[in-house]
Design a protein around this nucleic acid. Sequence first.
DNA 1: TACCGGTAGTTGATACATCATCTATCCGGT
DNA 2: ACCGGATAGATGATGTATCAACTACCGGTA
Lengths: 155, 155
Amino acid sequence: MSNDVPWLSAEEERSWRAFIHLYQKLTRRLGADLQAQSGLSGADFQILVALTDVPGGRVRFQDLAEEIGWERSRLSHQVARMIKRGVVAREECAEDGRGAFVVITPQGREVIEAAAPKHVVTVRRLVVDALSPEDLATLGEISSRLLEQMDSDPR
Amino acid sequence: MSNDVPWLSAEEERSWRAFIHLYQKLTRRLGADLQAQSGLSGADFQILVALTDVPGGRVRFQDLAEEIGWERSRLSHQVARMIKRGVVAREECAEDGRGAFVVITPQGREVIEAAAPKHVVTVRRLVVDALSPEDLATLGEISSRLLEQMDSDPR
DNA sequence: TACCGGTAGTTGATACATCATCTATCCGGT
DNA sequence: ACCGGATAGATGATGTATCAACTACCGGTA
């Protein structure tokens, strides 16, 4: 079924390609900068930031996964790698025998506190300061709208 | 040098987070849909589309890499996997003994021709048709501007 | 108490991304 | 003709993402 207007117009395609291209390039760039400046992957950074946002730097796997929008399995693997490097630790949960906490270690705090300001500089240079405040706001708004759309979309 | 105003304002941070969050979610979603509907990864799709855009469906590794903005190594690995599945093939290059071509196979054409329309429907539903034409254009414009900024940025 | 469906997190397999290194070839200068 | 730097692409190692089992525990019910 469906016969009509599936493909994108030239204009639509141009916008769509620019958007996708930007994402790919920006992700690579941010990841590379983070790695070069601080020895962290984007995944590491995201976890550590989330842990500093939470009292005690300690949170249930489940809640952390929800907070950053990850699958449990992905988080479990990522945390396992980070534990090996000593930036986070795992703690059993007394109230729920199945559960566990992820806790940021002192070393983890050092790492993220050193990394974050450098990362912000990059983000400013590449994005935030590269746009007018209005355009940045517009970008944020459009992003939010698309996020809602995705959340309301079935499948 | 530089002591001040490194972090983002609340407003800036909100925009930035929405933006990043959108990208992460959208990429996952598009990848999952592609996989479910057509058995392709985003990487597969990108390669196959690029190959259909080129006369004979045949292009030098180097040129393909440049076209889609990939590292050579990444392309080499990806193509190797795709060769195993029979959607593309590798051909030696007569003019340059070091070089090689990637060619889309008939099977590859079938696959991409079946996959593309479905993918477009998803892209329309989640993005293109979820915005007004003006907003989509704005998004494309901002993306282009940021891409330029990244290209002009050292390091 | 014993069962049982649901939940929390783990694990293994496979695909993908990135980096460093390697091989073969090309091309320019002598 | 030869040498040496540069280029095309391949390869192996490591980290990351996703999916499908799997384990252990919870909580309610008979």
